[in-house]
Design a protein around this nucleic acid. Sequence first.
DNA 1: AAGTTGAGAGGACAGTTGTTCACTGACTTC
DNA 2: GAAGTCAGTGAACAACTGTCCTCTCAACTT
Lengths: 218, 218
Amino acid sequence: MSHSVGGVRQAQKRKTRQALLDAALGLLEEQSLSSLGLREVTRVVGVAPTAFYRHFRDLGELGVALVEEALGSLHVMVRAILAEQDAAEERIDRTIAVVERHVREHPAHVRFVARERRGGVRAVRHAIAGELDRFAEEVAAALKTQPVSAGWRDEDVRMLAELYVDRLVTTAAELLDAREEGGEEAAGRVVWRARRQLRLISLGRRHWGEEGRASHEG
Amino acid sequence: MSHSVGGVRQAQKRKTRQALLDAALGLLEEQSLSSLGLREVTRVVGVAPTAFYRHFRDLGELGVALVEEALGSLHVMVRAILAEQDAAEERIDRTIAVVERHVREHPAHVRFVARERRGGVRAVRHAIAGELDRFAEEVAAALKTQPVSAGWRDEDVRMLAELYVDRLVTTAAELLDAREEGGEEAAGRVVWRARRQLRLISLGRRHWGEEGRASHEG
DNA sequence: AAGTTGAGAGGACAGTTGTTCACTGACTTC
DNA sequence: GAAGTCAGTGAACAACTGTCCTCTCAACTT
């Protein structure tokens, strides 16, 4: 463990970089990115303000890095859902369970994404939109292989996938602040509602062929 | 028009108050409320920083006032939709049209609500949540009177209403920044997608009685 | 006509902000 | 083991922030 690539140098740098990300994420629980201060972040880490510039040009760049981190973990969650091959009803339960677990394990990430998705920093909004787009694409690909999607137009599968993705992100966000502000009882209501909404959507999906896709083609 | 209640005094005060609200709303196009400065707002209005305190305790209070203003106009839009008694398909088209018009006429309000719904100021989040709750209640009441809802449990009507409300708010937000960043073409895609998503939901609604509400009661 | 009120002005305050610059000294490379 | 690299330091900068205080003077009250 002496002269291997990576070195003590780079390792230490990565460590402070991660510390900056963690500190920022922590501070973002009670404010939004556009009001976060550079000095505020470095103060928490215990490092000089100027050290910040060794890692990021500005807070927007740090924000984008946070997006990658946050949606990287979300990626795992989505794959876990898509891997299942259950019947519709069990699939929904599994999905909700995964969302619940994710919110419990990465609350700060969930909050960050939900908040900055429509937040005040353009670069971060774009980064999130791009990642969620990739998720939607993955989901669409998975949906397409299911028997229920036989005969569906690609654009319709995609619109369904986007509906699902948006619903999951929204549910995660709602679950998070329900738990914080209304306790376990309020969280339970959110879960109940999300489950039934997914059920209704899945019901609409099953009957799409009958009349849904027929009208207003172009 | 001399000694009537209201007076020149109060009128002038209301005027600057409104000017503060307008200035803030304008500044919020490119940042979020938690990063907005008190001086920044008064500077735009052309008034001394201290004058701010005559109208609001702090920016959070101004934010709550903005919520009332923004969702007041949204209220009009929702009623317009609910008043219609068309068939499902025409109803969807009308709904989308009203959303489009609203986004065009009140872009700043739409952006504000979308951004601060999950934003960094607790009081504002709560105010928005409260208003949207009232909307959902109104929508639920309207849905209940429709024949399709015969035999539905109240909680299910409510969960559907919330799904609709959330979808409309989301669509409005997406439509707004699609138009700004991708032009009319991107906006068209958003509208197309939203229409089909509403259609799918409405389809699920029509078949809810068959199997949807049956499972997992309690 | 005299007195009260209150929206807004203007100065001053202590803190904070992002960015610059020259610097140190542990690690890496030859 | 000498030379070089570069993550992090610390002082200084002008610009800005929210809040306090006293003041003014037009609109209102009686």
